[in-house]
Design a protein around this nucleic acid. Structure first.
Lengths: 145, 145
DNA sequence: CCGGATCCGCGAAGATACTG
DNA sequence: CAGTATCTTCGCGGATCCGG
């Protein structure tokens, strides 16, 4: 009967995972802010310290597609982190801005950014060392870090 | 060769995006920690305050596949955030632990987690309000969660 | 038996063209 | 200018097999 357990184990694992996420609020938020576009949008709005238009936001986040930007903005709006203001004039203007709640998220994110800026060189060195070690296991000549 | 325009634009955008990431260290780290498994692994190791085996780590992060766990662990090892200790005995044992660098990342991450725990209810309320508003723009009576 | 690498299927991310 | 629909591509997740 060992073969039938595969499906059961999948269901169990799924349920356990779901329950795990459900019981732990930080995990839910983690899942939200772990999205890179979310963080970039928050940072962009926070950096500008004011409302930004859709296109302006897209301009500040190179590499983002309209789809993902819209999707991210909708998600953030739904979560109450950003506000969406529509000016229904001939040139459609939509402004996005951080809500107080979204603004409060900037602080913890700033800590992470700060850490990143401080320790990025170390990480870069670690990467080089790791890659170099993998490339030359015998340990002959290692590239300068 | 008009068809190459699309490819060119893609390459340009890609290059711009890449350059954007390259010039901004925080973006690089952001791209790394924006991976939810990364954060979960870091938190799991930090929470346990000691080395954890591969299977033990997988047990503490329900829903993660072996592939992603291994992939994440490799990336973190490469970045010098975690250490990997292989005990090549008859029962293969591989222990992972936070390096000092990885440990220092715990603090900023903790801030984020803390924020999440504090503001999750607000976000939940915002979501409900948003969904409710979308469901009944006219203001009809609708009693869905 | 544990740790991990590989292959396959699926769903989401991404780019493009189109609409209001 | 803002946003949507469609197609493609890619990365995740799962199952299976391999090495120690």
């Amino acid at each position: 009967m060992a073969t039938t357990t595969a499906d059961q184990r999948r269901a169990e694992a799924r349920a356990a995972y779901d329950a795990y996420l459900a019981q732990c609020p930080s995990r839910q938020l983690l899942a939200r802010i772990s999205d890179k576009w979310v963080t970039l949008v928050i940072c962009a709005l926070g950096d500008h310290r004011g409302p930004l238009r859709y296109s302006e936001l897209a301009r500040r986040i190179p590499g983002v597609s309209q789809k993902m930007l819209t999707q991210t903005l909708r998600a953030l709006e739904r979560d109450g982190l950003i506000g969406r203001t529509v000016t229904a004039s001939v040139p459609p203007r939509v402004d996005y801005e951080l809500t107080p709640l979204g603004h409060s998220l900037l602080e913890p994110i700033w800590h992470v950014k700060h850490w990143a800026e401080q320790h990025m060189p170390e990480i870069d060195r670690a990467r080089t060392a790791y890659d170099g070690a993998r490339d030359e296991p015998t340990g002959a000549v290692r590239a300068s870090g």
